[in-house]
């Protein structure tokens, strides 16, 4: 991937009634996290599709997406190996009948990467995102949803070396969202979440609120929501611990919430 990509700029398009969207520009830089929230049908998927396709006033929304301030060359928009964006949705699957190691080796060969140890590094990274350990010799097609998503995020970071990763509603996939955010910040990746999850939404640097096909508000993270985030983190920790106990077959007989 092109290491030169410093920022992506989204320029406004039209809402469903033909009015211009109420933002000047949205700039996404490496290391930043962005969440996109809004009710079903509000245009969240259309927005990430615009980013993924580098819309050039040629999608239904009329938005334009620039790379480093200019219209990107067609080659980087059309060739998935050159595209600076990886989109991972709930529907994205690894279909090949291959072991995890072989699957990653296939991607490494395709990218002509010679660095040794990248496959092991990718599996280790994926295992930071999921509680269910991924073995190198497991078949990719039989991984759980959480394992698959974790593997694809890790693959986009290491082998794909993609500067921008878009995750579409991964909250149900059983991956450690807070770990993903922390690790990808460290790797200087820009991370865009389409989400209904309060933890993810509040952890992100910016929150884009969608309604009726258009961006209605961009909320910058400031200290004011920190208390809420802290409380949500605690609740999330509690739910995770309960999940593990239920998986382990325990009865939960004590009061779990101090109501």
């Amino acid at each position: 991937m092109d290491p030169e990509i410093a920022e992506i700029t989204v320029l406004p398009g039209k809402d469903k009634n033909g009015g211009t969207e109420h933002f000047e520009r949205i700039v996404i830089r490496p290391g930043e996290t962005l969440s996109i929230v809004g009710p079903t049908g509000s245009g969240k998927s259309a927005l990430i599709n615009d980013i993924e396709l580098f819309a050039s006033n040629d999608t239904v929304t009329g938005r334009t997406v620039l790379v480093n301030g200019t219209v990107p060359p067609e080659e980087i928009v059309r060739d998935p190996a050159k595209k600076p964006v990886a989109l991972i949705t709930q529907g994205t699957k690894c279909l090949a009948d291959l072991a995890v190691r072989e699957f990653l080796e296939m991607h490494v060969r395709s990218r002509k990467i010679v660095r040794k140890g990248i496959v092991e590094e990718t599996i280790a990274l994926a295992n930071e995102f999921t509680g269910e350990k991924i073995a190198a010799d497991a078949r990719v097609a039989s991984l759980s949803g959480g394992q698959t998503r974790s593997l694809m995020v890790a693959d986009a970071v290491t082998i794909g070396n993609t500067p921008i990763i878009i995750l579409d509603e991964i909250e149900n996939a059983g991956i450690f969202r807070d770990r993903v955010i922390e690790v990808l910040k460290a790797y200087k990746k820009a991370l865009v979440f389409v989400t209904h999850d309060p933890l993810v939404a509040l952890m992100c640097d910016r929150r884009i609120v969608m309604c009726n096909g258009t961006v209605v508000r961009v909320i910058e993270r400031c200290g004011e929501e920190d208390r809420a985030l802290e409380a949500i983190r605690k609740m999330d920790g509690l739910l995770c611990a309960l999940r593990e106990r239920i998986r382990a077959g325990e009865s939960i007989t004590e009061a779990v919430f101090a109501v």
Partner: peptide, 27 residues
Amino acid sequence: IDLVSQAEKEVFREQIREVAPAIDIIE
């Protein structure tokens, strides 16, 4: 194309190129 992993997307494109080097590929 929305249903397959990045790795498979890239390999699929390469395989098409192997059969039809000059073809215009639209995902």
